[in-house]
Design a protein around this nucleic acid. Structure first.
Lengths: 219, 219
DNA sequence: CGCGAGTTTGAGGCTGTTCAAAGAGGGTGG
DNA sequence: CCACCCTCTTTGAACAGCCTCAAACTCGCG
């Protein structure tokens, strides 16, 4: 992309800071802008008619989100909520059109991103169809640590506040079950919990649980 | 698109007939072509490491499929299997590139399609997270009837051979549970089953089950 | 007519949910 | 600086929905 063009792009961008718990926009709202997460972490939630909530995905710094319009949608399909203090950049939809026209390459790129997401969604569907809760949770934790891990001499931390409830909503179970699992894992030295904290001490053993090696170690 | 261009496109296309049970290509195979279903019906399956199978989606006539390369994937993520005698058209991947370059509009369109699929995937995830089996199966049947319904004076038929096992793999349950549900529904006059057949007699009552009106009618 | 794939149905058990209640961490205001 | 409160977490007990195992049945085709 030409530098002049990049400049023009940045000129039209708006920055905004999002407090913990605050939503960038609301599910169902008319989609007028698209966004880029610069800093922080967002959980994209969807609410069912019955009022239950699930987390569709986690947005990491550098990810585009809320580009509903690129998918020809009128409204935003979910609500991105700040899990940590965050900073987002956004553009009006019109800009997207001109970008794509002038840089077909970029459209291809965006498509790859969406393709990856579709892939992830199918993976999650497969896991929910075929795996029992413990393995699903193990997978989810591994993914979180992969995407948002901060290394440390004790292991890898999930680098943003994450409650048991959040993990439950990511894996389609209840916070009670997640809590029980974490307790069991902690007593085996695999993880270490804390209030909205999670530290993975032994990634390989967690991986073993995720892969379904039926037996845990030590009788 | 210019007619000359369309011609050129059709010239490079290959047609192929797929017998019931036959696969168009195999999961994991290197993606060299992309496809359009002209006639028939395909179930896209994914196999887990443990050998379990799930149905990721159903391909209907007019749908593009297997365009992994557009998503920058090397290989096909699933295996499309003919549920009915089918006819597919296919092109080498290179063609896709030239189409997109010459018709950015088309890329946008493809993106919308993928966006819809992502949407569907998220809906399915939400259902699997929050709904119990009966409602999930009801939703799946309604979708099938919507996308592949053939009307009739008794109701709406699913217009391709569909086993209980298939429905189970679509909804993340077992064929036993599906069979029991269908039996129960049949005795209430909501559906009528048959060997790889399904007839929905009372769509509104099925919708009520899907929406979770806890109580059935009668008594 | 017999075989095989698909379907039905029963019984029992397990995983994970629901309901309930108590326990801790950490921020805030007095 | 301490006490309080709110939210998040832990843990127990009982229940239930669904799966697993098992076996019989039936439709349709060769």
């Amino acid at each position: 992309m030409a530098e002049a063009e990049l400049d023009r792009l940045l000129t039209r961008a708006t920055m905004r800071r999002i407090e913990i718990g605050e939503a960038v926009f609301e599910q169902g709202q008319k989609a007028t802008r698209f966004f880029l997460l610069l800093h922080g972490r967002l959980k994209v939630a969807q609410v069912t008619p019955a009022g239950q909530q699930i987390i569709v995905r986690v947005v990491h710094p550098g990810d585009l989100f809320g580009f509903a319009q690129a998918l020809q949608r009128e409204d935003y399909p979910g609500t991105p909520i700040a899990a940590a203090e965050s900073v987002v950049m956004s553009w009006p939809n019109e800009v997207w059109g001109s970008i794509v026209e002038q840089n077909p390459h970029l459209a291809v790129n965006a498509m790859r991103t969406i393709g990856q997401r579709l892939q992830e969604a199918h993976t999650r569907i497969r896991e929910m169809s075929t795996e029992e809760v413990e393995r699903r949770v193990a997978h989810a934790v591994l993914r979180l640590v992969e995407q948002a891990g901060r290394h440390d001499r004790d292991g890898v931390h999930v680098d943003f506040p994450l409650s048991r409830q959040d993990v439950a909503e990511l894996t389609g179970t209840t916070l009670h079950t997640v809590s029980r699992l974490f307790s069991a894992w902690e007593s085996q030295g695999i993880v270490k919990g804390g209030r909205q904290k999670l530290l993975v001490r032994d990634k390989s053993r967690l991986q073993a649980l995720a892969d379904g090696s039926t037996r845990s170690n030590s009788d």
